[in-house]
Write a protein that binds this DNA or RNA. Structure first.
Lengths: 214, 214
DNA sequence: GTGCTGCCAACTGTCGACAGTTAACATTGC
DNA sequence: GCAATGTTAACTGTCGACAGTTGGCAGCAC
């Protein structure tokens, strides 16, 4: 049922390598050996190099001349800069979502929120998977393909940052409330409030990430 | 005086090819023949392919499997989506600039505005070069490297769109006023107004671009 | 004349090998 | 012992060639 979206070896290598980086299989700071990884993937260096350059353009790898690629490590300034970008994008998305949402969008957002609360009440931690699902649902409601694409890339970098953090934070309840408030603002068609709630939500997430970093 | 920032052939090819696309030397819709262009640049296909993929990641080329790269053509929906992204980014940049600007930033912004008015009064049209310089100065004042990087990429796409448009628009005086209003808001340290002015400015530019397209 | 079928040229995707550079190690002089 | 220097191994940057696919063209049937 899942058609091989990428027929080319380079395309497949992008997917595999992205997973290797995001799961921490290749940890931040580690370097990528082209010949070794090419053998491991059973392909030649050509397609692998294209995959490496592609992931570098997504920010999942950094390139140094004659020194190859490595997984980036982030300091506090990087986190702040990244969240400034994320805030710009997702606040705009929240505004647009509040302006353009359909009933189906609201239903979907509410469903994700409820599932999140169920999972949280069930004693488990707030699954990050559902957090991503919520933000994705909001992006769908915004109907702005380019903003959605950029948010996807930024979220990927955030996932990479999280992979370096071991302790899951205690702010999950606040995030659940933020999401609910966001849905309320979007459902009410209130772009300003949606943007404002999103801004505060991301400020909290960013602050928590900065403390986890230190 | 211009140090070869990219020693590698691939890096040089990126610069050359980017210029070929942005100047319209390779017009929108045209396809890129790897062997032919490689010979023309005096390099092999390997580095050129890397350059092509890089520009594709910047949105200056689109790739079709087994059909190579071509310069993208944009319709009204593309322009709108692009300007939604640009608005999200530059409004955030305007906000940050209003919060973080130094006296030197304000001086620089005012200088660019005055030079623009001088050039406009001199009978010439408002040089697009100075428009870019203004937005660049604003980004410098915002001090958000990731937002600045993304704006740079979006502006590049806008330049590509403009290359397909022959008639320069009559809204230049309005843009000059917008820029002045923006500087005033930034100098006053008023993020909300800066963002609002920027939003309206970009809405005007976008609308004008859409009419030029039709 | 029209539609289909098979061939063909052109181009992209991929590979293996060579050349150049970097960084680490060993060596030498002090 | 320490610093500077020569050496070497490993890795990246680059190249030319082969294989597979795509789209167009000619030829044939109708």
């Amino acid at each position: 049922m899942t058609p091989p979206l990428h027929l080319s070896l380079a395309g497949q290598a992008v997917d595999v390598l992205r997973e290797l980086v995001l799961t921490g299989d290749i940890p931040p700071g580690a370097r990528v050996n082209e010949v070794e990884l090419a053998q491991r993937l059973g392909i030649s260096r050509g397609p692998l190099r294209e995959a490496i350059r592609h992931l570098a353009s997504e920010g999942l790898l950094v390139l140094a001349p004659h020194r190859g690629a490595s997984v980036p490590t982030a300091d506090a300034a990087d986190v702040q800069a990244l969240f400034e970008l994320r805030t710009a994008l997702e606040c705009a998305a929240a505004e647009l979502a509040a302006s353009r949402r359909t009933d189906a969008d609201v239903v979907r957002l509410r469903a994700v929120c409820e599932e999140s609360r169920r999972a949280y009440s069930a004693g488990e931690r707030f699954p990050y998977r559902l957090d991503l699902a919520f933000h994705q649902a909001l992006l769908d409601a915004a109907r702005s393909p380019r903003i959605a694409e950029q948010v996807r890339l930024v979220q990927q970098r955030v996932v990479l940052l999280r992979s370096g953090l071991r302790d899951d934070p205690p702010h999950q309840h606040a995030s659940l409330d933020d999401h609910d408030a966001l849905v309320t603002a979007v459902a009410a068609g209130d772009p300003l409030r949606a943007s404002d709630v999103m801004r505060k939500h991301l400020a909290r997430v960013c602050a928590q990430m900065l403390t986890s970093l230190a």
